[in-house]
Design a protein around this nucleic acid. Structure first.
Ligand SMILES: [Mn+2]
Ligand SMILES: [Mn+2]
Ligand SMILES: [Mn+2]
Ligand SMILES: [Mn+2]
Lengths: 216, 216
DNA sequence: CCTTTTACTTAGGTATACCTAACTATCTGG
DNA sequence: CCAGATAGTTAGGTATACCTAAGTAAAAGG
């Protein structure tokens, strides 16, 4: 036995993430996110249903209790890996996603515990996303996208919903990282950019970009 | 592309290790070491030959230049992983083999470099085996098994050729770890045990066990 | 020298996870 | 209300890496 579960883990991880945006998750969204063909995903979904990890409701799938538990475990490992990579090995936050996406499947429960302990049980990944504890519990902060703030509103960056290295580099270069305070100086009309003030500097941010930044 | 090379890596790693004992490596020895059936190994060998990673000579295979290079890269990653696990994450030396055996395939060149740098470019794994540098070069110490020492001979433990957790725990409990000085007090005749002195204590060691401990 | 054991390969089959092409159902706009 | 677009599945096929059973070749022993 001891089957290789890395593909299943990858599917559950994707479903979990996509569920946060829209519920349930359609075959095509999942296929796009995993960069696979819809038939491949369709087929795998059948296996996941069979294993009791997802339920097929109306126009898509959603995680079962067990699927959710497994997804959270993968996400815990992913985020702990990211922290290991940044905090201990000195990676930058734009370099860790792909690496962690492989590591998460190669890490044992033992190692997961050791990483957490060595890092002092961090609550978030370098991008500000919560790390579930061993029971899948985590603090869900009430956040809103920076793009929804009005002129003169202030917020503290909680997380950055982005994985693209180029984008993350760009954001870091502006100092737009978790725990930093941002003030919106101006909101251009007709979906135009936001003028934001971060640690003394002023920048123009596109709406698209601003929507990825979650503040509280 | 970006094919998954983990199975190939695992084969090359095994061939490399077995080559150190006997050259060339037979199908059956490889099958036994990898815990696979001989036909599976036979088949994979064909693929490795085709890829130019091994050569089939007389009664077995041996690594080509390229196969050797790839094997050393895997071994570097394995041993660096072990060091990460012991030195940074606090694992004991008997807990790291299997973990490292999975990690070695999930680690990028980037991460390999970062681990090495973070640990100050360690020369050996926790079991005393040399870590090849980026070009595959490492210091090969001239060692002999502890079992070959005569009464009153002294030696410093360089490495322990063993992976079994139980055995490693036992050896650690006696203080038989790299860099420790051992003195052979007595060698029982007819393949009997050795009486050794380690940091003030005296122990009887079977020949089989003693042969796994390499000293200089 | 021939028989038995051992070592290795061939043949045929399984499971997993992907693909493209083709079909079907469902939604949408005119 | 129906034509076309969109979404999903079925059908059929590939690659990889494993297996057992059967066959063959080489080594060893009497
Ligand atoms: Mn992943
Ligand atoms: Mn993250
Ligand atoms: Mn290995
Ligand atoms: Mn080792």
């Amino acid at each position: 036995m001891e089957a290789d579960t890395s593909r299943i883990e990858e599917y559950l991880e994707s479903i979990y993430k996509l569920q946060q945006e829209q519920h349930p998750v359609s075959t095509s969204r999942l296929a796009e996110h995993l960069k696979l063909s819809p038939p491949s995903v369709s087929e795998m979904i059948k296996k996941l249903v069979h294993k009791g990890l997802v339920n097929q409701i109306e126009k898509g799938v959603c995680l079962t209790e067990e699927g959710n538990k497994m997804a959270k475990k993968v996400i815990r490992r992913h985020r702990l890996s990211e922290r290991l990579l940044t905090d201990i090995l000195g990676f930058k936050w734009d370099e860790v996603h792909d690496e962690a996406c492989r590591l998460e499947h190669a890490i044992s429960t033992e190692m997961e515990d050791r990483i957490a302990a060595s890092l002092g049980n961090p609550r978030t990944c370098p991008h500000g996303h919560p790390i579930p504890d061993k029971d899948g519990v985590f603090i869900k902060e009430i956040v809103k996208p920076l793009s929804e703030l009005k002129a003169m509103d202030k917020g503290i960056i909680v997380s950055v919903f982005e994985e693209d290295p180029k984008m993350l580099q760009y954001l870091a270069s502006l100092g737009l990282i978790p725990d930093v305070c941002v003030k919106v100086e101006e909101v251009a009309p007709f979906g135009g950019p936001l003028i934001v003030c971060v640690s003394g500097s002023r920048y123009a941010l596109g709406r698209e970009v601003a929507s990825k930044i979650k503040v509280k």
